[in-house]
Design a protein around this nucleic acid. Sequence first.
DNA 1: CAGCGTACCTGTAAGC
DNA 2: TGCTTACAGGTACGCT
Length: 298
Amino acid sequence: MPELPEVEVVRRGLDRWVIGRPIESVEVYNPRAIRRHTAGPLHFAEVLTGRTLLAAHRRGKYLWLPTDGGDALVGHLGMSGQLLVQPPDAPDETHLRVRIRFAADAGDGAEHQNRELRFVDQRTFGGLSVEPLAVPGADRENVPPGIAHIARDPLDPHFDATAFATALRRKRTGVKRALLDQTLISGVGNIYADEALWRARLHYARPTETLTGPQIRGLLGAAEAVMREALEQGGTSFDALYVNVNGESGYFDRSLAAYGQEDRPCPRCGTAIRRDAFMNRSSYWCPKCQPRPRRARW
DNA sequence: CAGCGTACCTGTAAGC
DNA sequence: TGCTTACAGGTACGCT
């Protein structure tokens, strides 16, 4: 569930279900799913077994869960990854890649205490790893090195809008490409980039250096607003590939104005939404509300 | 160094 | 019915 709202939905589920429970065993069914853990599957299982996850943090689309061993379990869902909290007797998913079992708590036999965490990923663009932390502990500002290059996201209380505007104008590229650059601003993917640009009435190929201050502030406000609204509705999902830790889909797809709406009327002006090929994907835009600039870049 | 294209996977749907 | 092609919400890396 790839973009910020979907990942935040998962983070909240992890925070509720897997924190404070000792890990009993770890099984890796596809080593590609932990390819960023360079020490390999055996080591991955070894360092986690017996540890307890202390918290669930997120920056952009990355998750990390500090352990009481001084390191952190890092996760990215890629294009099709899911983190599911399942009862042990639930049948294995077709694309189950990693299983993490927790020790049963003798003092509390509540049903959720023996649920296991499963990383399921059809395309295996996502993955898990264990990374050291500069300072042991559950501090959210203590970001693992593998995530250090990721910029803060618009829902981060320390996000610096002024610095973002400056950096954006220094770029020599199209505004959508910049929005998708996770080292500039994180959490925004193809859906919310198109929705934010539509709300801000900006064409995706608008050169970044020509954006005015108010336009950048408008764009940033739109990105933050659309992701907050999506989060309130449990995220966006068109099919069962994008679900929360309990396997449930969000329903923000009903609120999309531009993304996936080719040939449907723009909710603002009624003009047919268009689709262009963009970076081996698609861009959806309203030709009237978001006119193509004479000098386009992408 | 910055920007851009491509590779990495599996599955589904559309077109012939 | 089969076969082929296009496309899917992301990131990393190599080339220019």
